[in-house]
Amino acid sequence: MKHDMVTITIDGRKTSVPVGTTILAAAQQMGIHIPVLCHHPKLTVTGACRVCIVEIGGQPVTSCTAVAEEGMEVTTASPYIEGLRRDIVDLILSDHPYDCMVCERAGDCELQELAYKYSIRQPVFQGERRIYTKRDGNPFIERDMEKCILCGRCVKVCDEVQGVGAIDYAYKGFETKICPPFERDLDCEFCGQCIAVCPTGALVSKPSLGKGRKRNVNTVETVCPYCGCGCNITYDVVKNEVIRARSRQDTINEGWLCVKGKFGFSFINSPDRLTTPLIRKDGKLVPAGWDEALDLIGERLRKIRAADGPDAIAGLSSARCTNEENYLFQKLMRAGVGTNNVDHCARY
């Protein structure tokens, strides 16, 4: 056996994992599901929600924080542990609005899933619920702090991944909440990373509000149209309209986007889009049919080529078009027109 590996037993099955592996990670590798709410694979350990508890040597321990030690015996789902988990979820629900029917994240909510799993219709523990008014004026991120379960993912992603630190915990005890300094309106890079990691409907995209929930959308994977990072984007589409941008964690951008990628997609469905060819007639651009426009182009270019040679024609291609289009464009100029007068905007 290698020195940098330890062998542990989870639910009666032995496994070897590298030193330093958490019980949660080891279980996940074995395909054993342990519920989590605050844990996020791309962020450092928090240990706040406590629902990932397991039994090690008879003691309840959070599996996201417990590191595997040689010979450990772990039980992930005894009646005792499931009972504790149920009660923790119960406590969270006792301070959560019961408005799944109108929540943006219904069907895509990690808390809802746990409530379903433990079949909690009414919490055993009941009492006061935090009531906040939504009043953040920023145009991107809707912050419904009543739905916040204080898992801390947004705080961590903002600090650890985005390097901004726009939000943090404030106040103490039951009144604890996550907010920008002095509860001012959010004023940040609006990358939306916090939305991406939020397990509930506490943080959602304002431009997407009311446009469609998880089960009603089609999703398409593509690449962001903005800078050269080449981030992978998953668009949610409803009736030929892009309503939301997300990204998967297993992509080169690890699931993160920036404000443009996350929120800058409505231009696709903009009413300003050109929908028909335009031809300048009497100094004005007027709509025309495709055949008319293409024939005119063919005629004029042929004439110019005939009169002044192919080098009197030039083409500028686009860094926003695909490889295939760029290839065709230069092929058109070189093979179709017969000139090397082709360039693109790499210099600007």
Binding site: V223, C227, G230, R320, N323, D343, H344, A346
Partner: peptide, 22 residues
């Protein structure tokens, strides 16, 4: 060098330049 537009690399690769083919 970090590319400013999503497919600057691609349009260069594809030969959209006056001195080079793809």
């Amino acid at each position: 060098p970090l590319r400013g537009q999503n497919n600057v690399q691609g349009s260069s690769d594809m030969g959209c330049a006056p001195n080079v083919y793809p």
